[in-house]
Structure formats: structure tokens, C-alpha cells
Amino acid sequence: MPVQTEPPKIEVGSRRGSAPASGTSSSTKVAVRDLNFFYGRVQALHNISIEIPERIVMAFIGPSGCGKSTFLRTLNRMNDVIPGTRVAGQVLIDDQDIYAPGADVVELRRRVGMVFQKSNPFPKSIFDNVAYGLRINRVTSSGSELAGRVEEALKDAALWNEVKDRLKTSALSLSGGQQQRLCIARALAIRPEVLLMDEPASALDPIATSKIEELIFDLKKQYTIVIVTHNMQQAARVSDTTAFFLLGKLIEVNATEKMFTAPNEKLTEDYITGRFG
């Protein structure tokens, strides 16, 4: 019996416009060179090198514990807050090494926004959640401009119509999907250049998930987006490029379409056809 001699058909690019931008992007936004990462003595990432072009969506896939989230978090130095971690190698954003001595972490995180797996709105009002980053970074001192930026961010996150009449109510009164979009709005408000998303839809139902996916598709016009996902269909739907991680190593980076139809590496094929992981 021929067991899956062909990879299963995963619909690719169903949400994409007529002209797919995959692989044709011009300049490199993020360049990682020989990155190694350690939790104490345990090495979680091995010699990762990858280039992420500007204004595309790149998906990281791989089984649990393969290091994709860890790698994502090295891109805005979010791992710095975990005691006992160590980074070796270079992460260049616009040709500047973010791990260079004297690099400004606060400035970095302003430029590289992040949305987490579990939505984490602050126990404040909806408005104050979105305004938080603007206030912290002293983006504006005028109240009307602040309100404008909040409205814009909520619109970008496709949440404005649902919350415009209750901006002063608690963010915790929103549904799970709305909370996650609020977190996206919060990240967008300070207009980052890169948006990191760590399984942003893993805790959401299919309807909320599809809203987030549509959003990602819209956002790529302005932002460089890196998304970690467990869900290969999701990677296929939203991303232009896909990177496959296994046991802390980067196995393959390829155009998403190619990745899910004819990957270069045997390991990738085994994974996406469900032979392990």
C-alpha cells in the first residue's frame, strides 16, 4: 500500500491577492547570523542563520519544543527577562546588531512589537490598553492626537466597530478573540516595523482565528510579520515564506507554496506529511 508518496494537499494562498509577493521582496529587514541560544547549560538553538525580507509574512513551524518560540523571542530580546539565558551570534535589524553592547533594548522593543500566545491585556480600560505604549514612549502629549492614534490602531486591528462605544470599559470584559485583537492593536499603536506573533490564534475558536488571519494579511502591507504557529494550514494560509525548525535547528526556509508542495529537505516533508511531530 503506498503510504503518502505525495504530500497531502494543503490549500496555499487562498487568501492571497492576485499577485503573490512570495520570495520576491527586496530588502532584508532582519538578518540572523550563527545564532546560538542557551537556557543555562541547555542549548536551545543551534547556529541559526536566516534572513527575513521586509513586508512579508514569515511563518515558523515545527513540533513543540523545537525552539521556534525561543527564536522568535530573541528577535526583540524578550528572553533577556528570563534569568540564566545566554545568546551568541548576531541579530541584525536594518544592519544594526541588537545584541551589540550598548544597544537600546527599549528602543528595540518599540521597533519590534510582539503579540503573545495567550492574550495579555492589562487590567485597565480598552482605551488605556491601546494608549499604554504611546504614553510610555511619549509619542504624543496631546489628548486628541492620542485618541486618534488609539482609534487608528483599533481600526487596524479590526476591533474598532466592536468597542468604539465602550472604550472606557475594562479590557477584561472582552471575549478571548477580542482580547487578542486588542493586544494586536496595542502592539500596532506604537507603529512597530516588525511584528512578532507567537501562536496568536492558538487559544481562539475558528471564527476568531479567521479574523486574526485576515488581519495578518492586511497588516503585511505595512509591517514585516513573523508568526509562530502550530497549525500548518494556518502557516499555509497566511505566510509568504515558511521556516521549519526541529530540535533547535533551522532545517529549511522556503517559499510557503514550495514548502508545502515540494520541500527541499526530507525532514520537512516528513513533518508536513505527518510522519512525526
Binding site: R109, M114, N120, K124, Y132
Partner: peptide, 25 residues
């Protein structure tokens, strides 16, 4: 911890995270 990370990821320095997010919560 996710609240602290959320604030840090928005470019907040630690003292502002503590004062503006953690203590109010």
C-alpha cells in the same frame, strides 16, 4: 508574568512596568 512581558514588549522600562502595570494589577 505575561502582563509584565506584554508591557516590556511595548518598550516599557522595568520601573514603569512595575509602577504602571504590575502594582495596579
Amino acid at each position: 508574568h505575561s502582563l509584565r512581558e506584554g508591557a516590556l514588549a511595548l518598550g516599557a522600562p522595568q520601573w514603569r512596568v512595575t509602577l504602571g502595570v504590575v502594582i495596579p494589577a
